[in-house]
């Protein structure tokens, strides 16, 4: 279908599909768990946007650093967090990725380079630039990656982060997941120029807009940006046009700000279906069966995990 397809082996394509399937099936299980009352707080799913985290993280090493948002389950899973540790976190268990301290919006797994998701919009952009600064100072070829939404692109952190990354040529990928709505406010209402990638010109860095539902397009753009960053040439802004097909958060009403036709049109461009169309059906079915078993096991693990010991509620405020 695309030139990129020819460059990737069948195993690589299947691997991309597997990652997207892990995200999708985990999110669907989390949505059911939310309805069942197993999730104590918020739950922002990544359904519909799987190609972005998958295409970007397929280019990263474990020691590259990802900084993410309130909608960060997909980034965590794509960077190497297990569905079991993610689910256990949302269920408030001691085995959760943040040991039950964070829930949906505070996922930390530094051992796989998942440096945190955040309940505040914007800081991840600056922190990824800071990781880039560290990696340059320490003479490594590691990269920092910020995932953020179109909402964050209108926040001052975007300007300050991209400007500093540009002037100091920091090894950073700025991945804007433009899903067209900041909660329920359209980008057309909140941005003087809704084409986020065009803003790269203002910082004298490359800016590209890609179809964020086509994992191969995302993969290719991120591959170039990663190579560029590792080579010392500096940061890249990638705007991935995508869509959140579920509500902003589970349990929220999802009406009045977008039309059913718009949602249906994006569902027809489901990133898993787009890739599956290029793969043997039997391989896809085999991956789906494997992922279902993994997610079922994760759910059982999470549900049966212990809650944290209340005696640990105030540990680790300080290191020293």
């Amino acid at each position: 279908m695309t030139q990129t397809t020819d460059k990737l082996s069948k195993d690589q394509l299947l691997s991309l599909y597997r990652t997207m399937a892990v995200i999708r099936r985990t999110e669907e299980q989390l949505a059911r768990a939310h309805q069942a009352g197993l999730i104590h707080g918020a739950c922002h799913t990544y359904v519909g946007e799987e190609a972005v985290a998958t295409g970007v993280c397929a280019n990263l090493r474990t020691d590259d650093a990802v900084f993410s948002t309130h909608r960060g389950h997909g980034h965590a899973l794509a960077k190497g967090v297990s569905p079991a540790a993610l689910m256990a976190e949302l269920f408030g268990r001691a085995t959760g990725v943040s040991r039950g301290r964070g829930g949906s919006m505070h996922l930390f797994a530094p051992e796989v380079g998942m440096m945190g998701t955040s309940g505040i919009v914007g800081p991840c952009i600056l922190q990824a630039a800071g990781a880039g600064y560290s990696f340059k100072l320490l003479n490594t070829d590691r990269v920092g990656v910020a995932f953020f939404g179109d909402g964050a692109s209108n926040n001052g952190a975007f300007h300050e982060g991209l400007n500093m990354a540009s002037i100091w040529k920091l090894p950073v990928l700025f991945i804007c997941e433009n899903n067209l709505y900041a909660t329920e406010i359209s980008i057309n209402q909140s941005a003087g120029n809704p084409n986020v990638a065009e803003r790269a010109v203002a910082y004298n860095i490359p800016g590209v807009q890609v179809d964020g539902n086509d994992v191969l397009k995302v993969y290719e753009a991120a591959r170039e940006a990663t190579l560029r960053a590792r080579s010392g040439a500096g940061p890249t802004l990638i705007e991935c046009r995508t869509y959140r097909t579920r509500a902003h958060a589970e349990g929220m009403r999802d009406a009045g700000y977008r039309s059913a036709e718009e949602v249906d049109a994006w569902k027809a461009r489901d990133p898993l279906k787009l890739l599956a169309a290029q793969l043997p059906a039997a391989d896809v079915a085999a991956i789906e069966a494997e992922v279902k078993a993994q997610v079922d096991a994760a759910y059982d693990f999470a549900r049966n995990s212990p809650y944290p010991d209340p005696a640990t509620a105030t540990t680790h405020v300080f290191a020293d």
Binding site: A65, P123, Q127, G130
Partner: peptide, 23 residues
Amino acid sequence: LRDTPIAERGFIGLCTGAAMTGS
């Protein structure tokens, strides 16, 4: 010894990420 733009929020956030990654 890095001279910065006048962007206090920006360089605090940058240093946060740097402190998390070995600096």
